[in-house]
Design a protein around this nucleic acid. Structure first.
Length: 270
DNA sequence: AAGATTGTTGCTTA
DNA sequence: TTAAGCAACAATCT
């Protein structure tokens, strides 16, 4: 499940490898993986090169050398971008560069996509996202403002990309555990102290996950095909039924919040 | 063999 | 008008 730290890691990896390499050919093995006009997709990319890759929320934004348009890539749940790997049965798109190297877009469940957009469409998509939580401009004050008047629970809020960008199911669970707050706590019942702790935990958990290059549970791998290291720091995600690493007494419970599996310790999180 | 897995969209409801 | 909640999408694993 690529979330902010995973997308950030892949972005860094690709920026070291594929910038300004001429795309000699582009092979689309699965039409569904291309959103929008397929002909425009191939036409825009063939003979072109990616000038710079940026990240916003969980989305890659690739600026192109010979076009004002942009290539957007979303990995959704099972997408991978692997440089110089090998084609497999889940490979959907292959970028062939003129130096002989290749970039593979693999996506087992076919939810991810690649899409060419103009600058207007790009801006329209990007303006829907909430603030980037790791930027210094994401202050406690800003977070308080986002919470103000909300009737939902804290996990639902953390997952809402239009309120805060980049948090998914893994890090939402880890953040509220770190903050000792139950994932189903209603926003309106949170005290200032708890809000501050959640805000700090957002920064702390995401920054550490970026440093450890993401969580390789399921399908996520880095651009070089290697795994990220954050899985060994997980405290609740994937730990259902195990003893809580903090209190060492209570078992980690699983509940459902907006249809998502949600793990927490009922002793440590209030 | 049904149910769980999850990011986002789009719809319905309040 | 806006927010909240949920089904749908897809393929695999348990």
């Amino acid at each position: 499940m690529p979330e902010l730290p995973e997308v950030e890691t892949i972005k860094k990896g690709l920026n070291k490898k594929i910038l300004n390499k001429k795309i000699a050919d582009i092979v689309v093995l699965k039409n569904k993986s291309i959103k929008g006009n397929k002909k425009e997709f191939t036409k825009t990319l063939k003979g072109n090169a990616i000038k710079k890759i940026e990240r916003r929320a969980k989305l890659f934004i690739c600026a192109l050398q010979k076009s004002d348009k942009f290539l957007l890539i979303h990995l959704k749940m099972t997408g991978q971008l692997v440089y110089n790997g090998e084609k497999n049965k889940h490979t959907r798109v292959i970028f062939k560069f003129s130096d002989g190297s290749k970039l593979f877009f693999n996506d087992l469940r076919l939810f991810g996509y690649l899409k060419i957009v103009d600058i207007e469409e790009k801006n329209k998509i990007l303006e829907k996202f909430g603030p980037e939580p790791l930027l210094p401009s994401f202050t406690l004050k800003k977070f308080q403002k986002i919470l103000k008047g909300r009737k939902t629970n804290i996990k639902t809020l953390l997952l809402n990309q239009s309120l805060i960008a980049g948090i998914g199911n893994i890090y939402a669970d880890e953040i509220v555990f770190e903050a000792s707050v139950r994932p189903d706590r209603k926003i309106q019942t949170l005290e200032y102290k708890e809000i501050k702790k959640i805000w700090r935990s957002i920064k702390k958990v995401l920054a550490k996950a970026v440093k450890q290059e993401g969580t390789s549970i399921g399908d996520y791998i880095k651009a070089d095909g290697m795994e990220g290291n954050f899985a060994k720091f997980l405290k609740v995600y994937g730990k259902s039924g195990e003893i809580c690493p903090a209190c060492k007494k209570e078992k980690i419970k699983t509940i459902k919040i907006i249809g998502r599996g949600t793990r927490f310790c009922s002793k440590c999180q209030k």
